[in-house]
Computed example of a mutant assay.
Amino acid sequence: MLVVSRALVITALVGVIVACVGALLSAGAPTREAAVEAMAARSLDELGLLAGVADDEGELLREEPLGVEVISDGGPLWAVDSVERAVGASPYFALANSPHLLRTEIIDERGAIALQLHLWRGGWELREPEPLRARVAPWAAVVAGLFGAALALFTRRLSVGIAGAGALAQLGLALDPLPRHLFPPRGLLDAWANGPLFGRLVPMIRQMSSLQLGIVAAALAASLVLVAFDHRRTRGRDGDVGLGPASLAALLGTLGALAWVEAASRGSLFAACDLRVGAYFGWLALAGLLVAWLPALHLAREAWRAKN
């Protein structure tokens, strides 16, 4: 029977404490600045298309980026610096003493931030139909990750722990209350589509050619074939659960990992890792999570060695 040493358990408990401390400290001002900068970058891409500065393929239609002056139109003044950094990194806009104004409107509340940029150009106002929003709840992914580590250790299956972590992370964000008059509730699919992960991933997929999509599909099919061959090699040995359950476990683990990454991205855990603005507590939380998963990873490795 596989066992976990006391030293490894103590190390994992230290990781739990570190992850919790990192999660608590990750909701500070640096994380909010990084989240606003990321939202501003997405909004500038849309404004570039609306203003005719870029085409549908993302190519600049001018000889040089459009110069804009960033001014505050409501909200904390620190947000202007975040938007200016996004403008400086944008291929479509540039900071300048210009008659074209980029007005920033920010709502900064507990647990969430909303941003809307207004481009005033030649008497016209251009803006997106709805403001972008970012959740500031890194605790959801961290707590879910710790729960997943315990579940994986209890069931001795990594896929179950990963699936549980993903489900709990999504549930935590769904149940975390926000001011309804400022942040109207959204459905899960809408939240995913407008989140920082799929908000960029879906347009990238749409721009992929048929050949690129075929390569991705072939890679996924090859992964399934490898799972089948690995099961065939170990069939009949101790711990064999059958090809169907093994494939289901792999699928649940993959979906759980995707759900956890999406929740960590939407909850600004990854924004808390932006060292450019001094956001480093996210790294502390991720390091603690990794250490907390060590016992489950150890059991999974030993079980794999026993079968092979």
Rank of each mutant, 00 (worst) to 15 (best):
A169L: 06
L126H: 05
Q116Y: 04
P91T: 07
L286H: 11
L171F: 13
G187Q: 11
A41R: 05
S72A: 14
V53F: 12
P245E: 04
P76K: 02
L178Q: 01
T11M: 12
S98H: 04
S223T: 05
L24Y: 13
R32T: 05
A169F: 03
L61T: 11
D238W: 08
V3Q: 13
V136T: 11
A169S: 14
A250D: 02
L2D: 08
V291R: 02
E33P: 01
L50F: 13
E130N: 05
E46A: 14
A141H: 12
A169Q: 01
L251R: 02
L102I: 00
L284F: 11
L117W: 06
A79W: 05
R110F: 06
D45N: 07
G166T: 01
E37K: 04
A306P: 00
A94T: 09
A141W: 14
D190M: 11
I162S: 00
K307A: 15
H100A: 15
L117C: 05
L189N: 04
A296V: 00
F154H: 07
Q170H: 05
A89L: 05
P196A: 12
S209C: 04
A150E: 10
V80Y: 04
R186E: 15
P184T: 08
L66G: 04
A249L: 13
A165W: 00
G122P: 09
A163N: 01
R266A: 14
P129M: 08
V142G: 14
D81M: 06
A174C: 02
A41D: 03
W260V: 10
M1R: 08
T104G: 02
A279H: 12
L153Q: 10
W78K: 08
A193S: 10
L226A: 13
S265L: 11
V16M: 11
L189G: 04
D230E: 13
A264G: 15
T155W: 07
P131V: 02
A219V: 08
A257G: 15
P177S: 01
H231R: 10
M1C: 06
S268T: 00
H181G: 03
V143I: 14
L95A: 07
G278H: 13
A174E: 09
N97G: 03
L101R: 11
A303I: 02
R232G: 12
V14Q: 08
F270Q: 00
N194Y: 10
F93Y: 07
T155M: 04
A259S: 14
P131G: 01
A263C: 07
P131Q: 02
V18I: 14
R276F: 13
V202D: 07
G253R: 04
W260C: 12
M208C: 03
L224S: 05
H100W: 10
F198E: 04
E33F: 03
E125I: 08
V202A: 13
R235I: 05
R156K: 09
D274L: 03
G195D: 10
V160C: 01
A38G: 02
F281A: 15
